[in-house]
Structure formats: C-alpha cells, structure tokens
Amino acid sequence: MEKITIIIDGKQVEAVKDQPVLMAARENGIDIPALCHHPELESSGGSCRVCLVEAVQGGRSRIVTSCNYPVRAGLEVNTSTDQVMKIRKGVLELLLCRVPDSEVVRGLASKYGIDEPRFFKDEGENNRYKCIACSLCTQVCEDVVGVSAISMQNRGVEKAPGTPFHKDSQACIGCGACAYACPTGAISMKDSKGVRTIWGRKFKMAACSVCGKPYIPQAQVDWIVKTTGKDRAFFDKCPDHR
C-alpha cells in the first residue's frame, strides 16, 4: 500500500494510491454523500452519481464520481464547489422522481433543498418502489454470497433487480444479504414465526439451541456448510450465544 498525499477541499490528506477518493475523504473525516458504493464490494459504485466531486489532475478539471475515481499523485479534489452542488442536486431531484417513496433519498434530497421534484414521478412495479437500480444487491449475491439468485433486468427506466422471469429462485438461500446491502431499503424481507419471506419465497429458519430464537435460514446453513466445509454444529447457536 503506497501512501501518497492529495488535497481534498484545500487540506492535505494522506491516502492510499488507487483507493477510491470517497474512501480517502471519509477516512479523513470529509463527508461525501453516496448511495451505491459499498466498501466491501470492489466493483460497486458509479451508478447513482450522488458522490460527484470536482477532480483536478494534470491541470484538467472535471466532475467525477468519487466512489470509483482512483487516488493518484497530484490529485486535488473539491467536494462542494457551486457546480458540484448544483449537479448533485440535479441528480438527487431525478432520483427522487424515480423513488419518491424512499425515505433515504427523500432525506438526502431535502438536505439539498428539494422537497418535491419538478418532474413527473415514476410509478413503481417489479420491486421498483424504492429501488435506484444501483445493483448492490445483485453484486452482493454474486460476488459475496456466490449464488447469483438475482440479477439486474431490463434497461432504461425499467431496470431493476429480480429473480429469473420473476419466478421463485431455487438458487436463493434466503440469506438477505441483498436486503442488508440495499442503500434505500427497497428489498422486502420479513421474518415471522420461524419463517423468512424474501423474493417471494419462504425459508424455514434454524433456531438457536440456547435462546430458541430462529436466526438463520436452514438453506443458508446448508450453503455455508457445502461451500466452506464448516462444521454444521457451529450453527446450533446464534452469534449471541456462541
């Protein structure tokens, strides 16, 4: 890890070469709003366009997304110039048009002075009510969980994640990683009476032998045991009682 010094908002900060500017900024206490970036997912980001900043490099200034713009020597970043704020506000207004029901987007837009967008709002269907089509869910499912139960479907405004042909996915293990990764709470996951409902399927939950609380879908235990060789007995107890 090669450490270099770059300038963010006029301050000299230390950063790791090639790390995303967003991470460098956050590590130095500079906040940049972002929705579609997840620090654990290398391929994430670049979709929502909320984290725009001005990057000046080699005498050239341009608006870039900080979540995937790499830290390089000589870089100067400005996170809140007039232009950056104006364009970011424009992006948020468009996001609000897409997902007027999302509390997260509504809250963020409100910080930029938008309570109601000037344009028509989308009417959601196929999981689109709060979805900003950032694909964090499908990336987690593929890259971290490794089951690829869901994928991004359609294009343009219709783009949204889903199971193949909107039918029950036999690949899904009910782990809910997609719901945890979703920045806008768009994926519905309900646990009730030892059963988890997600993507239209019901998963039986295994209970903790100590507290008796159902805490993990049986299908997830099977998947972990199968792919990692972990001892099945490990899952007898929930994380609180291990």
Binding site: G46, S47, C48, R49, V50, G90, V91, L94, L95, C97, R98, D122, I132, A133, S135, N154, R155, G156, V157, E158, K159
Partner: peptide, 12 residues
Amino acid sequence: EESCGKCTPCRD
C-alpha cells in the same frame, strides 16, 4: 429507449 439504465442522469 436505448439508455441502459445504469446511471441516474441518463436513465431518469
């Protein structure tokens, strides 16, 4: 019609 839908400005 042809927007891939990946980024907000183009899609929305």
